[in-house]
Amino acid sequence: MSAVLKSVTDARSTKSKEESTDSAGPDKKFRQRVLILSSRGVTYRHRHLLQDLTSLLPHSRKDSKLDTKSKLFQLNELADLYNCNNILFFEARKREDLYMWMSKPPNGPTVKFHVQNLHTMEELHFSGNCLKGSRPLLSFDKTFESKPHLMVVKELMVQTFGVPKGARKSKPFVDHVMSFTVADGKVWIRCYQICEAELGKKDAKGNGVDGEEEDDEKKKKGRKTGRSETEISLLEIGPRVVLTPIIIQEGSFGGPIIYENKEYVSPNVLRAEYRNRRAQKFNVRSAQKVGREIKKKALRLDKHRVGGGGGKDWEELQAGLKDLFQED
């Protein structure tokens, strides 16, 4: 009996498959699974961002922190282990800088971003909210298609942030938009809830006392015309992130670098510059102090030097004078 049932179901499934292939043509279902994890040394904000992303991406698999920061190619094996074909890896450095790696294992390209202006849902008190696991609309800036490296970035984003149809925990309704915009050489990510308000209803409420009949008529009208009557507005959900692409590698966490952002300045360098600039003040002052000492000596204003013309002091003074004139 069971065999019969099996054969029947098999036949049905094959039929349905055929139908689907007929209707969609050569397009297959896009299977996407994202491995999300971070390195050690993330701060709470980084952790919260991770949490937000996992809650927004039902097709993601969250894993424990990765121990190493140098052998990132281990991630490929990990992805294989978890059956994932996308990796979203957050690398924290010095407990303040966050880098995001986006990759297509086993041999897709890898993009490394520097994460800036990071704000999680927790700290942004936005009133927007959406279903956990609903599929987002992905809105891309046209600029993404202007340059090849941006095209790669866009493709990776489509696959990691786009929830595939029929993903395990996904919901059938669409109630939020993720927007990706290129501005100032950076990718800005925002997430909005879609609020629908029926205009007909609003009007009815506005009229209020006029009578139920009118309301009914309007409702009917609304039903007839349907779609055009609703007004769409957006409410931001969060999180907010700005990504600066740094490099693109040809392989997954390996291979030659095929793109490098020349506008990118490492935060370490920035900090060093800042520190140097501040140190300069001290350096200048200390140099001035030394110069003043020498000048004093040259003018014999120093009390102890007044009597003595020769000897060691005299030699010192001569040397000092020499230095002074050389400097000038």
């Binding site: 987002p136 992905l138 800036d141 046209k142 600029t143 298609e145 915009t181």
Partner: peptide, 14 residues
Amino acid sequence: SIHHTIITSTPVEI
């Protein structure tokens, strides 16, 4: 409904 991606018709300029 399969891909859910929309690209703006003109580049967003800020």
